[in-house]
C-alpha cells in the first residue's frame, strides 16, 4: 500500500543576493516525504540544508534570499503561492521547526513557560488561560522538565534543557511536519542521545513526519527512514537508510563521507578526509559540482551535469553509473 504523501518539493532553487555576487545555495532540489516518515538531509556546512528547511516555512531572510524556481507542495497546496501574512497560520500549527542553537533560539526576556504557552495560544485562540497553562505544563513534562520550572528564564537552563524547551514549543500544537535543523549539534554527546531518543519517542507517539537536517551519520542511522545527501545545493544521492548504509553503490561523495568516519569494526590508523573544500556557492564549477574533489573524475564530469540514476528508488547523481543502466 502506497503511503500518503505529505510534502513534495519540486525543483527548488534558492539564491542569495549579496554584495559580492549571487550565491547559488539550493540548486534544483526535489524530494518527497511520506506521512509519519523521517527524511534526513545530510551534508557539510554550507551545502544548503538549512536554506532548504527555511524555504519550506518561508523564513528565509527577505532582502537577500530569493526562491527563483520550484514548488513546495504541502498537503496538496503550494506553500509558495500562499500570501506572506497567511503563512503564520501554517507555521507552528502544521509545520514547525527546531533550530540548531538552543542557546540563542529562546527569547531571553520571557519565561520558558510563557514561550510555550505562546505557541499554544497562537493556534488555539478558543482556549482559556488555565487550559493553555495546563497544556504547556503537559508539554514540559513530555520533554522531561518538571512544570515547576515554567517560571524560570532561558538563562537559568542548560543547553540540553533549552533544546527540550524548543522541542516542547515545536510540538505544542501537534504539527504534521517538524523540521529539525541540527537539533543536537550544539549539545554534548550524552545529551545528544537523550534528546534524539526523546524526539524519536514523541515522533512515534504523534505520528509526526520529520525532516532531520544533520551532518552526522550517527543521527541519520538512529532517526531516519530515508536519506538525501546534499552537496553544493544538490541532492547527489537519495535512498532509504538501508540503501545508504548497506548498498555497495554510492556517489563518490557519500563514500568519502563514510571514509571520514571512525569505524569500530576496522583497525584504521588514520581517517580519510575528503580532499579539498566545498566549492564557493558564488562560483560553482560546471558539470558535476563534486568533480573538483572526486577521485574518479573523468572528462565528462567537468562539462556535463549528471542526472539521477535510479536503482529501484536509490538515486545516485553520478556519471560513473550511467554506463550501467
Amino acid at each position: 500500500m502506497e503511503k500518503e504523501i505529505l510534502l513534495t518539493i519540486k525543483n527548488l532553487t534558492v539564491k542569495y543576493k549579496t554584495d559580492d555576487g549571487i550565491a547559488e545555495a539550493v540548486n534544483n532540489i526535489s524530494f518527497q516525504l511520506h506521512k509519519g516518515e523521517t527524511l534526513g538531509l545530510v551534508g557539510e556546512t554550507g551545502a544548503g540544508k538549512t536554506t532548504t528547511g527555511l524555504s519550506i516555512l518561508r523564513l528565509l531572510p527577505e532582502r537577500t534570499a530569493e526562491i527563483t524556481e520550484g514548488e513546495i507542495i504541502f498537503k496538496g497546496e503550494n506553500l509558495l503561492d500562499i500570501p506572506k501574512n497567511e503563512m503564520s497560520v501554517i507555521r507552528g500549527k502544521q509545520i514547525s521547526m527546531i533550530f540548531q542553537d538552543p542557546m540563542t533560539s529562546l527569547n531571553p526576556v520571557y519565561t520558558v513557560g510563557s514561550q510555550i504557552e505562546e505557541s499554544i495560544f497562537l493556534h488555539n485562540r478558543d482556549l482559556t488561560n488555565p487550559q493553555i497553562k495546563e497544556k504547556a505544563d503537559e508539554m514540559l513534562e513530555l520533554v522531561g522538565i518538571t512544570p515547576e520550572r515554567r517560571d524560570d528564564y532561558p538563562h537559568q537552563f542548560s543547553g540540553g534543557m533549552k533544546q527540550r524547551v524548543v522541542i516542547a514549543m515545536a510540538l505544542a500544537c501537534d504539527p504534521e511536519l517538524v523540521i529539525a535543523d541540527e537539533p543536537t549539534t550544539a549539545l554534548d554527546v550524552t545529551i545528544q542521545a537523550q534528546v534524539l531518543r526523546m524526539m524519536d519517542e514523541l515522533k512515534r507517539k504523534y505520528g509526526t513526519s520529520m525532516i532531520m537536517i544533520t551532518h552526522d551519520f550517527g543521527v541519520v542511522a538512529k532517526t531516519c527512514d530515508t536519506v538525501a545527501v546534499v552537496y553544493a545545493g544538490e541532492i547527489i544521492e537519495y535512498g532509504t537508510v538501508q540503501d545508504i548504509f548497506e548498498d555497495d553503490k554510492h556517489h563518490p561523495y557519500t563514500t568519502g563521507l563514510f571514509h571520514s568516519l571512525p569505524n569500530m569494526n576496522q583497525d584504521t590508523e588514520r581517517l580519510q578526509p575528503i580532499e579539498g573544500l566545498m566549492p564557493d556557492p558564488m562560483a560553482l564549477p560546471a558539470g558535476c559540482k563534486f568533480h573538483t574533489r572526486c577521485p574518479h573524475c573523468f572528462d565528462k564530469c567537468k562539462t556535463v551535469l549528471p542526472q539521477d540514476i535510479d536503482f529501484n528508488g536509490h538515486m545516485i547523481k553520478c556519471h560513473l553509473y550511467s554506463k550501467e543502466v
Binding site: L59, S88, G92, L106, S119, H123
Partner: peptide
Amino acid sequence: DYIRTARAKGADEKRVIFKHALK
C-alpha cells in the same frame, strides 16, 4: 535567532516586532 523562532511559531509580524523584539 529567537526572532526567527517567534516567526516559526506562527507569531504575526506585529507580535514579532512589539512583543519579541521591542522588549
